[in-house]
Structure formats: structure tokens, C-alpha cells
Amino acid sequence: MTWVLVVLGGMIGAPVRYLLDVRLTARLGSGFPLGTLTANATACLLLGLVAGLGLGADSPGYVLLGSGLAGAMSTYSTFTFETVRLAEEGRAGRATAYSVLSVVVGLAGVVLGLAVA
């Protein structure tokens, strides 16, 4: 049953991440990967909320929202790829800013989620 909850959460999280990326890139351009940054920050906020509500790693709520939804919404591989791509394009400053901003915003999202819960 647990794996079904992960799949259900992932069925929502993955398309949300994709749509955020597509919409933000279409609106703001591809000079800075705001779609991935936004998806990862939102997933961190959600994980903070889930943890703040006291949902244990084995609870159905954590499995659905934490492992499934937030897990599918966040993407370390795309973050890393986009950082390398920016650096290869000669935009080392943007690559560095993106890396630092991603970590800071992610941590802030978790802290905010914990505080709100």
C-alpha cells in the first residue's frame, strides 16, 4: 500500500514541476532556471510543513506528501545539470548565484514550513 501512496504523490508532483518550469521559462526566459528553483523551493516548504505536522516517515501522510509529491517535485539532477550548463555557457556568476540561492531558498522553505506548521 505504501508504494501506491508514493506513486499517487509522484503523479501530482512531477507534472507540477514540469508545468512550473515550462510556464516560468515561457514568461521570463531561459537565462536563469527559475522553474527548477521554484519547484525545489516549494518542495522544501512542503517537506517542512509535513515534518512540522509531526508526520513520521512511515505515516501515510508523509509517504504521500513527502516522498511522493515533494520527492517528485524536487530535482537535484536538473539543478546540477542547469548549474553546469550555465557554467559551460560562460555564466559562472549565474551558476554560482543559482547554486547558492537554491541551497538558501531550500533551507528557508523547510524552516518556514516548520514554523507555519
Score class of each variant (00 low, 15 high):
M11K: 04
V84K: 03
W3V: 09
V16I: 12
S74H: 02
V63H: 05
A92M: 01
F81W: 15
G54I: 15
T36M: 01
T42F: 03
R23T: 11
R17D: 01
E82P: 05
L53S: 15
T75L: 09
V16R: 10
Y98K: 07
V105G: 13
V16C: 12
V22F: 02
E89G: 07
L64R: 00
G61C: 10
L45C: 09
L53C: 10
F81K: 13
G48D: 11
A92K: 06
A115H: 14
T78Q: 05
L65P: 08
T25S: 10
A51G: 14
L107N: 13
L47F: 06
R91H: 08
M11A: 14
G29A: 11
L49N: 06
V6K: 03
L55A: 15
G29R: 11
V50Y: 00
G35R: 07
L5H: 05
V104E: 13
A92L: 06
M73G: 01
G54F: 10
L112S: 15
G71E: 00
S67R: 11
G71W: 00
S59A: 09
T42Y: 04
G71Q: 05
L24S: 06
S99K: 08
L45R: 15
I12M: 09
L112V: 14
T38R: 07
V7Q: 13
A51W: 13
G48Q: 12
T42N: 01
L37N: 12
A87R: 08
A41Q: 07
V6R: 01
V103D: 06
R27V: 14
G10E: 08
L5M: 06
A57P: 12
F81H: 12
Y18M: 04
E82V: 07
L37P: 10
S77E: 03
V104T: 15
A26N: 08
W3D: 06
D58T: 12
V116D: 03
G113Y: 05
G13E: 01
A70G: 02
A14G: 07
V50S: 06
